[in-house]
Deep mutational scan, measured.
Amino acid sequence: DLPPEQWSHTTVRNALKDLLKDMNQSSLAKECPLSQSMISSIVNSTYYANVSAAKCQEFGRWYKHFKKTK
């Protein structure tokens, strides 16, 4: 379990794929700090720029909290 400071584009993509087993992209976009188009691009590997470090950390913090509450 990585601390949010160490999250990267790959970590975010893997976490998104895991979350999308249980929910669809639009529900996920309402919950998490990423937009639906960004989620779609990341999981389909069409998001060519890497997600910014700040966004990765924000998502990492959100993901840890989300997993605790589920």
Score class of each variant (00 low, 15 high):
D1S: 07
D1C: 03
D1Q: 15
D1W: 01
D1G: 04
P3A: 10
P3N: 14
P3Q: 03
P3L: 12
P3T: 10
P3C: 11
P4S: 09
P4T: 11
P4M: 09
P4C: 04
P4H: 15
P4Q: 12
P4V: 10
Q6P: 05
Q6D: 05
Q6T: 14
W7Q: 01
W7N: 02
W7R: 01
S8A: 07
S8E: 05
S8T: 13
S8D: 06
S8C: 15
H9W: 14
H9T: 15
H9I: 15
H9C: 15
H9F: 07
H9K: 12
H9D: 05
H9S: 15
H9M: 14
T10I: 15
T10A: 11
T10R: 11
T10D: 06
T10M: 15
T10F: 11
T10G: 14
T11Y: 04
T11L: 07
T11R: 08
T11H: 14
V12L: 12
R13V: 08
R13S: 07
R13Y: 08
R13F: 05
R13C: 10
R13A: 08
R13T: 09
N14R: 14
N14F: 12
N14P: 01
N14K: 07
N14Q: 12
N14D: 10
N14I: 08
A15F: 03
A15P: 01
A15H: 02
A15T: 14
A15E: 07
A15Q: 09
L16T: 01
L16V: 14
L16H: 00
K17M: 14
D18W: 06
D18F: 06
D18E: 14
D18P: 04
D18T: 10
L19H: 00
L19Q: 01
L19M: 07
L19G: 02
L19R: 02
L19V: 06
L20E: 04
L20P: 00
L20N: 03
L20Y: 02
L20S: 03
K21Y: 10
K21N: 12
K21L: 10
K21P: 03
D22F: 08
D22H: 13
D22Y: 12
D22T: 13
D22L: 07
D22A: 06
M23L: 05
M23I: 04
M23F: 15
N24D: 15
N24R: 08
N24L: 04
N24K: 10
N24G: 12
Q25M: 14
Q25I: 14
Q25D: 11
Q25P: 13
Q25A: 11
Q25N: 05
S26R: 11
S26C: 12
S26T: 14
S27E: 13
S27D: 08
S27W: 04
S27M: 14
L28V: 07
L28Y: 02
L28G: 03
L28C: 02
L28W: 10
L28T: 01
A29F: 05
A29V: 10
A29N: 04
A29T: 07
K30N: 08
K30H: 15
K30M: 11
E31Y: 06
E31D: 09
C32K: 01
C32T: 05
P33D: 02
P33N: 12
P33K: 04
P33W: 00
P33L: 00
P33Y: 02
P33T: 02
L34Y: 02
L34F: 14
L34N: 01
L34G: 00
L34A: 01
L34R: 02
S35E: 10
S35D: 12
Q36T: 10
Q36C: 13
Q36N: 15
Q36E: 15
Q36P: 11
S37E: 12
S37F: 09
S37L: 10
S37V: 10
S37G: 12
M38Y: 07
M38D: 13
M38S: 12
I39N: 00
I39C: 02
I39F: 03
I39G: 01
I39R: 00
I39E: 02
S40H: 15
S40F: 07
S40C: 11
S40N: 09
S40I: 09
S40D: 14
S40E: 11
S41K: 15
S41W: 06
S41V: 04
I42N: 01
I42S: 02
I42H: 00
I42Y: 09
I42L: 13
V43N: 13
V43E: 06
V43C: 06
V43I: 15
N44M: 11
N44R: 05
N44A: 07
S45P: 13
S45V: 05
S45R: 13
S45D: 05
S45T: 14
S45H: 13
T46E: 12
T46W: 06
T46D: 08
T46A: 13
T46V: 08
Y47L: 07
Y47H: 15
Y47G: 14
Y47W: 07
Y47P: 14
Y48N: 07
Y48G: 11
Y48A: 11
Y48H: 15
Y48Q: 09
Y48D: 13
A49M: 10
A49W: 08
A49S: 13
A49N: 10
N50L: 02
N50Q: 12
N50F: 03
N50G: 12
V51A: 03
V51D: 07
V51F: 09
V51I: 15
S52A: 07
S52N: 06
A53M: 13
A53H: 14
A53T: 09
A54P: 04
A54G: 07
K55F: 01
K55H: 05
K55Y: 05
K55N: 10
K55M: 12
K55E: 14
C56Q: 01
C56E: 01
Q57T: 12
Q57K: 10
Q57G: 05
Q57C: 11
E58V: 04
E58D: 04
E58P: 01
E58F: 01
F59G: 00
F59L: 00
F59P: 01
G60W: 06
G60L: 05
R61N: 04
R61S: 11
R61Y: 09
W62R: 01
Y63F: 03
Y63A: 01
Y63N: 03
Y63S: 00
Y63H: 03
Y63W: 09
K64D: 05
K64S: 09
K64W: 11
K64Q: 14
K64C: 09
K64F: 10
K64M: 14
K64A: 12
H65P: 02
H65R: 08
H65E: 12
H65I: 01
H65A: 12
H65G: 10
F66T: 06
F66S: 04
K67I: 12
K67H: 15
K67L: 15
K67V: 09
K67P: 02
K67Q: 10
K68C: 04
K68T: 13
K68D: 04
K68H: 09
K68W: 06
K68Q: 10
T69A: 06
T69F: 06
T69E: 14
T69V: 07
T69C: 05
K70Y: 07
K70M: 14
K70V: 08
K70E: 15
K70W: 13
